[in-house]
Design a protein around this nucleic acid. Structure first.
Length: 131
RNA sequence: GAUAUAGGCUAUCUUAUCGCUCCCGAGUAAUCGGGGGAGGAAAGUCCGGGCACCAAAGGGAAGCAUAGCGGCUAACGGCCGUCACCAAGCAGUACUAACUGCAUGGGAGGACAAGUGCAACAGAAAGAAUGUACAGGUUAAGCUGUAGUGAAAUCAGGUAAACUCUAUGCGGUGAAAUGCCACGUAGGCCUGCGUUAAGAGUGUCCCGCUCAUUGCAGGUGGGUAGGCAGAUUGAUUUUGUUGGUAACAGCAAAACUAGAUAAAUGAUAAGAGCCCCAUUUGGGGAAACAGAACCCGGCUUAUAGGCCUAUAUCUUUU
């Protein structure tokens, strides 16, 4: 049962984008779209072993480290609970690198972030599958 | 009793579901079970250390810091104690002055008898000259004294959180340090011998010191944001006790109390607690400042609500 890992809502280190090399590649070559309050950058990578994501909040927009932390945690939490559809399309979309950049100016609550993140995942699948 | 200000202490809890990270145990493994998981400031990066490295680290100048006295400390620009002094207050002597005592708060306080600068108002004049009146005095003369202004008028004046001087301290860099391992392609680097003596470095300068250019031989090795160590058992914490006014130190016992690395410590829901309005049931609101990044000791700044202390104002009762 290889599906058992994807059905569980875990978020281990292997699914988090942490390699500096891959991050550089993603920002250099990746395509992107805006979906308030996020900017989503994504790239199909040969080097990646599986779908990986990262969340980022600008230090310029949010000076306090505490608010930056909470926003990042909400994004990661929303991704953790809603990523299953991405993994179901894994064979079609390949090993994807995704970066969520928080571009909103206000601190959104969890419900709002989750709603928008679901939309962004749907859009990602749509764009990649149609190609 | 209420409000305001200042200082100190504290920094909500429980349950359920789904996760993250480290440690321990089981398992070939997937994984499972148990346990730990941000702060009083983790912040600012302002001081002081530990630790590590350096082609150079030595002497002098410059620069920066400190400044009563005594103590504490690994060290400090920190802390503790204490004195001069200052402030307003109370009491006494005295009687608009002044002196003494008391408690409170402050207390960067070496040198103005090296030099330079600065000084409101008043005053002729504030360091350069002596004006006016009177007295003295001379060949003559601010040559001498007094009056007047002022805190101060030749008195070794006042002022150094004014330049400055004196004493003491300070090499630089900063865990992206540094060491090791893995895979391994170039510039390099090291050692030995010969050669060159223009220059470069020592992130302020001088002396001093160090290095060098090129050829040959031998060795090593760069790069990859990879892994491990450094890295959490320590000037540690708690309790007791002894010494000391205190900061703190000694002794004994017990404890191990985050260890991430594009960076964990979370999300959601319910309830309790808090505040406000109704006050029988209920409804609404707030939850501060803020996130470890090699580790300690301080300083500074930010802090809702609650508790304690001090001061001020208002009010009630006696």
């Amino acid at each position: 049962m290889s599906e058992s890992t994807t059905l569980k809502n875990t978020f281990p280190k292997s699914e988090r984008l942490h390699s500096k090399k891959l991050i550089q590649e993603l920002f250099d070559k990746g395509s992107s779209f805006y979906l308030y309050p996020f900017k989503v950058i994504y790239l199909k990578s040969e080097d990646a072993e599986q779908i990986q994501m990262l969340a980022s909040v600008s230090k310029r927009k949010f000076k306090s480290a505490v608010t930056r932390n909470t926003l990042k945690r909400r994004i990661k939490e929303a991704y953790r609970l809603n990523k299953t559809s991405l993994f179901e399309h894994n064979s079609q979309i390949g090993n994807l690198l995704i970066a969520y950049i928080y571009t909103g100016k206000e601190v959104s609550d969890y419900q709002f972030i989750e709603k928008k993140l679901k939309k962004s995942i749907d859009r990602l699948i749509k764009e990649l599958v149609s190609k």
